[in-house]
Design a protein around this nucleic acid. Sequence first.
DNA 1: GTCATCATGTAAGCCGTTACATGATTGC
DNA 2: GCAATCATGTAACGGCTTACATGATGAC
Lengths: 227, 227
Amino acid sequence: MLDLAILGLLEEQELHGYEIRRQLRDSLGLLANVSFGSLYPALARLEAAGDVEAVDGADEVAPTAPPTGSLSGERAVLRARRHSRPRGRRSRKAYRITGQGRRTFARLLAGDGADDARSFGLRLAFARHLPPPARLALLERRRAQLVERLAEVDGARSEATLDVYARSVVEHTAEGVARDIHWLERLIEAERKPDGQRAAGRAASRRESGGRVAGRPAMAGKGNERN
Amino acid sequence: MLDLAILGLLEEQELHGYEIRRQLRDSLGLLANVSFGSLYPALARLEAAGDVEAVDGADEVAPTAPPTGSLSGERAVLRARRHSRPRGRRSRKAYRITGQGRRTFARLLAGDGADDARSFGLRLAFARHLPPPARLALLERRRAQLVERLAEVDGARSEATLDVYARSVVEHTAEGVARDIHWLERLIEAERKPDGQRAAGRAASRRESGGRVAGRPAMAGKGNERN
DNA sequence: GTCATCATGTAAGCCGTTACATGATTGC
DNA sequence: GCAATCATGTAACGGCTTACATGATGAC
C-alpha cells in the first residue's frame, strides 16, 4: 500500500523521501504519519526492484511551468521560490519512477481485489490514472463490500442486549457505512454519465459552500484521461 | 487491543474462543473478522499471564436466568435452547476472567492514551465498566484528537492542486471527521447531564431499535477505518 | 460416507511501528 | 556554538493475517 502511494506521487514528479512523507501528510491526508522507518526501506526496495531510480542530479523540481494537472507541482514550485535556494539538504536522494514502475503502479492501482478503507481511499485518490472502466469497477467493488458490511452491522444493530454505549457505537458505525455507500453511489452516478465537460467535477465536491468546484484541475476535458 | 476485547466479553460471561469471535463479529461489529490465528494465541497469553483461567466444567452457560445486563446472555440462552443439546463440541476450552484479569481490563479500558479509531470504539463499547469521570475523559480525549485531525485534513482540503478524485476523498474524510466530532459532542453532553433513571450500568432499554437516532452522524472512526 | 459446522491450534510472513544513529544547513 | 529543521537510514519488535493441520459431531 505504501508502494502504491509512493509510486503515485512519483508519477507526478521526482521527489525525495522526506518530501514524499510531507505530501502524504499534507496533501492527501491519507496515510498520515507514515514513518520514515517504513518509508525509506520501501524506497530502497522499490529501487532494488527497478520500479524507481535515484536521480542525484542537482535540483529535482522540474523547470516546466504548468506541465499537467499535477497533484502538487504548483505547490512545489511555490515553495522552491519562497526560499530562493533550497535549504537544509543533506544527501537528498531524489527518485524518479521508471517505465517498469509505471506498470507496477498501474497493476497496484487496478488492484487484485482486497481493498480495505485505506487502500480504497488511496486508489480513488489516484483514480485519475485509471482508465474509466477500471474506475467504475473500483467504485462498484467497494460499494458491494460496504453493502455486505452494512448487512453485518445491521445484524448487530438489532441485538437486544447492547447497553447504551455499545449501541451508540454500533449505530454510529452503521450510519457511517450507509453514508459511505451513499457517497460511492454519487460517484458511480457521476462516473457513468458521459463525461461532458464537468460531469465528474460536480460529484466530487457536493459541499455547498458555493460552487467553488472551480476549475477541473486535472480532470481536464477529454483526451488525456484515457491512458 | 484484542486483549481488551476478550477481557471485556469475559467480564460478562464465560466463553470459549470460537464464541468470542462470533460475538466480536455479530454483536459488536467492531474488530470484525479477527482471525483465530491471533485469537487463540491471545487467549493462551492471557491465561499464562493469569488474567483468565480455563474452566473445563461441562457447560459454560450459566444457569442464571437474567443475570446482569450481559452483552449477549439472552442470545446464548436462546441458541442453547434451539438445539436442546449443544452441538459440535470438541474440546471446547471455556475461559473465565480472574480478579487480576479484571484489574488488567480496567487498566486497558482507562487506556494510557493512544486511541486510534478502533480502540476508541472498543473502549466506548465497554464504557459501562468505566467510572463516569473516566468515561467523560475518554470522550473528551477522543474529541480533542479529532479536532486536531480535522485541522490537518482541512489543510489538505484547501490544497488547490487536487484533482476531482483526490479532492472527493479529502472532502469525504473531512466530513467524516466533523461528524465524528458531532457525535462525540452529543455523547459528552449526555454524559454531563445528571443521569436520571437511565443510569449507565444497566442494560440497554430495548424497545425502539428502528432507525431513529437524532442527527445523522457518520463514519465510525476516521477516514481510514475498517474494511 | 461425506459435507458443513464447530472447535483449537501452529508457522510463516507482511506491514507497519518505535527507537536509535548519523549528518548537513540555517538562523539566532 | 547550538538548536531546529531537513534528511537518510538501521534494528528490533508488534500485532495481525493467511495458510496449514487436526479433530469431533450432526445432517443429509
